[in-house]
Write a protein that binds this DNA or RNA. Structure first.
Lengths: 200, 200, 200, 200
DNA sequence: AATGAATGAGATTTCATTCAT
DNA sequence: CATGAATGAAATCTCATTCAT
């Protein structure tokens, strides 16, 4: 009873084990793709036995879903923080563009793997949806404040979001070391133009 | 003397067999996803034996590649035809938007399946690339003709293309029966604004 | 806080825990079969942790063996009591038939699961053996007392026992609600005839 | 149709392959029990690859069902042939007993494995049923011909059948080399007594 | 050119059992 | 005594691909 002062209990707290498994899965999905990743690789990477995986997840799709949720919440928080730090509406939109570029550069491949390379039923676009919904709010409030004019907030939000995603994706494809600053500035211009502002 | 009166000739012209197999694969990929589609399902759907598949394609990835090429060429031709029919640059850009919306509405799910839900190596974005390259040409020629101003043709093209894709995708998700006209008009406005034109 | 006021004492008397585990196992074996029953189901049903099972039994086969012993002793006692209550030999044999029918009706499925649906080594027929041995005694003593004639006591005992089992089994298969009385009477006739008595 | 006169096609006729797999399964079930037999053992024994098993059966239970049907039809035929060769009713019943003993001695363990050591749903007793139904017919016709008296044909048939099975089973348990003749004669006596005949 | 039986590597999943707390 | 997280051997089943006919 007295003795054991080990900081590394053999039996880890459930969240930690779960997180380790998710982390291992994420790395392998990124490196080899989802289909090519086996449960065994995941458990080996996480330094646990195969059966342990099934103590925390019911299947490969189950980890995938958990990773999606985690990714979405993370990114939304990053963007919200950046946007809320700005006063004027154009600045908010610019901040949205910068934070979005940044967030996606950090995780573009993960995003694509999690949200595209999956089975039809899950193609719902969970992150995309919560990010887009947030942007719709910004656009509508900007309209109310007469900061800009927008015909249809949803279409515009979808357009901007997709544009952001495409630009980061393209930059990533061209070279793995992406320059955030110029990319962010170019996207800011495009975003401002899209809501009818000059963009310079 | 005997002249083939069979309704189902045993030996079909190679292109026809190939096309039938591709068609079968396309339908099954659309319905069930790529991973869930087996070679046997493809050959059964195409009314041939399993071995016959390997007479025309070397693997599952091989049909996938063939479908990608076919899809890309088809769509580019549609867009080119529409754009070339216009005189003024703004009209060309509007035509690009309309034809793009149309082309993608017809095949949005197929596009996503062919170009996203695949293994990393093929994630190159074949269609996207040729469509984007074509649009870059339009944007640059419009700049030369002082029809509009564009900072970076590539970024802008990627942005527009991604926006187009996203908007059609979103419309498709909302309702399977998409209204082309309003969608096309909304996109035209966004495109024109993006290149610095008023868009009305 | 000191004195145990818990309604569910953590530590129960060993026999009670053991009995609870056996009871849980019995119910699950009956409902789902032996192979389909997991240790975890047993411990969950008995409201203990998985490891606790191994404090009382060394393996799944071990509970099975314990259940077999318990079942056999129970049934033999029932039959003995009935037989010993009779004076004449024909009455003893009739009582054997009745008590056997009754005992088996109560537990026919359990019997079959415990004694048939197991691995070869345990197929020894533990109950069957002790019941049959008891019946052999009755038959031999009846012969000595010139109550009936029997060629080979063992064969006859096996024949009667198997017939009893078969008849109850068949009745059970036909309808889950078995009528004991008519069944017992029919079996009595068959038993008496088998030892050369008229049976009416 | 001219050339190929090969007697040994590399690809065997389906029935032959199927029979080989069933035969391999039977041997292994007998030697090691059902649960302890793996699909891989079956295919190895049958000299085919693992996947081939699934070309002919959908699961282990599926072979089991096929073996049951085969066993039942086989045994019934044997008994019928013996019974039909006799004129008088007592001789028919004696023939039934002999053929039954013989048939079961040859396959007692197989019978038990196929019909007892299985999951609850299949415990229906397929052979037992068709053999019993056949015996019910014999008993009833014997009654009509005033060859003997029987209260309830079904009960009696079940009783006799179970007795037969039990006696063979017991003899088998006592020694693996069973003497057919004495066993058959003893059973004949018991059968005749059961229908009210003297049995000598 | 066409067939489809056969292959067999490999993936997912289960669960009896152990053992540190 | 009791716990339940962790283990990992083993079983089932799938399916892309081959090849003899």
């Amino acid at each position: 009873m007295s003795a054991s002062s080990k900081p590394h209990p053999r039996t880890k707290p459930p969240e930690e084990r779960r997180a380790e498994l998710m982390h291992a899965a994420e790395r392998l999905f990124l490196r080899n793709g989802i289909a090519a990743t086996t449960i065994e690789q995941i458990t080996t990477t996480a330094h646990v036995a195969k059966g342990t995986f099934y103590l925390y997840f019911s299947s490969k799709d189950d980890v995938l879903a958990a990773l999606r949720v985690h990714f979405a919440q993370d990114l939304l928080q990053t963007i919200k923080n950046a946007v809320d730090g700005q006063k004027s509406w154009p600045d908010k939109l610019s901040a949205w563009a910068s934070a979005g570029v940044s967030g996606y550069i950090d995780a573009i491949r993960l995003h694509d793997i999690l949200f595209y390379a999956s089975s039809p039923p899950t193609r719902e676009g969970l992150v995309d949806n919560i990010i887009i919904d947030h942007l719709i709010g910004i656009l509508q409030n900007g309209v109310k404040a007469k900061a800009w004019s927008v015909d249809d907030a949803r279409s515009t939000a979808v357009f901007l979001f997709s544009g952001l995603h495409g630009i980061v994706d393209d930059a990533y494809r061209s070279s793995k070391r992406v320059q955030r600053e110029p990319l962010a500035r170019r996207l800011q211009v495009l975003c401002l133009r899209t809501v009818g502002l000059s963009g310079d």
